[in-house]
């Protein structure tokens, strides 16, 4: 075996390893989807989307749960995106590099690793009690927004960092102010990475149960929210409830609920990816 062969062997085995590593995730996801699909697909019907929870598994539905999930996700996004991007821009473009900014940086990264139930306790104390939001969609959304802020901030910073310095300099050379440079040059150029961060963050938020239960999300809510001050339930809570029921028919409902949750996530992420791709096409340098 000469040197050339060894190189080829190394090259190929690395490729095999990489393919294997990728397929682990895909195969797992595939097994999960097939299993859930087999268990729950036949349960998906109009009735399932328009009914309230019920003690009779075949009459039960997820109406208030999926509507609640959409409310929560929408409100969370409205809170987390502007705040997260704003903080990311400040840290990358405005703050002076020094001990203070590295201190902030470490803290934000640490926050991303805090268990979600802790955010729930924080939300209960601050939003529900101190700020008197009550056990409302607003309190739940603020809590989830806090939970995903670190992800949004970190990804915003990373993608702003990746914008070439020459772009900023060119902008300044043409007489643009700092605000104009950030808003019209840096942000559009970084939009792809920022969007990816937001997608990841919202995908995490949609499956959260623990912090929402702590801030007072309910399980049985027979009405849809009219405003962000109403009480609510979300899909993961309903799914969790059904999984823990003794009758096997509820497990079918749970599987169907999971399919809907996955579908909502895919639709949400898919539209974000579309949006991102369209955006990136317009960025030329």
């Amino acid at each position: 075996m000469n040197n050339e062969d060894i190189k080829t062997l190394k090259n190929n085995s690395f490729k095999v390893w990489a393919v294997f590593a990728t397929s682990i995730g895909l195969v797992m996801l595939g097994i999960l989807l097939v299993k859930i699909g087999m268990d729950g697909m036949h349960r998906i019907s109009m009735q399932f989307f328009t009914s309230l929870p019920s003690r009779r598994a075949e009459e039960a539905g997820i109406f208030t749960a999926w509507v609640g999930t959409l409310w929560i996700m929408g409100t969370t996004a409205l809170i987390a995106i502007p705040v997260g991007i704003g903080a990311g821009i400040y840290l990358e473009e405005y703050s002076k590099k020094g001990w203070w900014s590295s201190f902030l940086e470490i803290n934000i990264s640490n926050l991303a690793g805090v268990p979600s139930i802790i955010y729930g306790l924080l939300g209960l104390e601050v939003f529900v009690r101190l700020l008197h939001m009550g056990e409302s969609i607003l309190a739940g959304s603020f809590t989830l927004a806090l939970l995903i802020l670190p992800i949004v901030i970190v990804s915003t910073r990373e993608s702003i960092k990746a914008v070439p310095k020459t772009l900023r300099e060119a902008s300044y050379a043409l007489g643009a102010s700092k605000w104009q440079t950030v808003w019209m040059q840096v942000l559009p150029a970084a939009a792809g990475g920022v969007m990816t961060g937001i997608i990841l963050a919202l995908s995490r938020a949609i499956g959260e149960t623990a912090p929402l239960i702590v801030v007072g999300a309910l399980t049985y809510v027979p009405f849809t929210p009219k405003s962000v001050f109403d009480s609510f339930t979300v899909l993961p809570i309903q799914i969790f409830n059904w999984v823990s029921r003794p009758q096997a028919e509820f497990l079918v409902n749970a599987a169907a609920g999971i399919i809907v949750l996955v579908a909502i996530t895919i639709v949400m992420n898919g539209s974000a990816v579309l949006l991102r791709n369209r955006w990136q096409k317009n960025v030329k340098w």
Partner: peptide
């Protein structure tokens, strides 16, 4: 499923 979801959304 997507269609069902969409219809349900509109209904709601």
């Amino acid at each position: 499923l997507l269609i069902t979801t969409a219809v349900a959304l509109i209904l709601a």
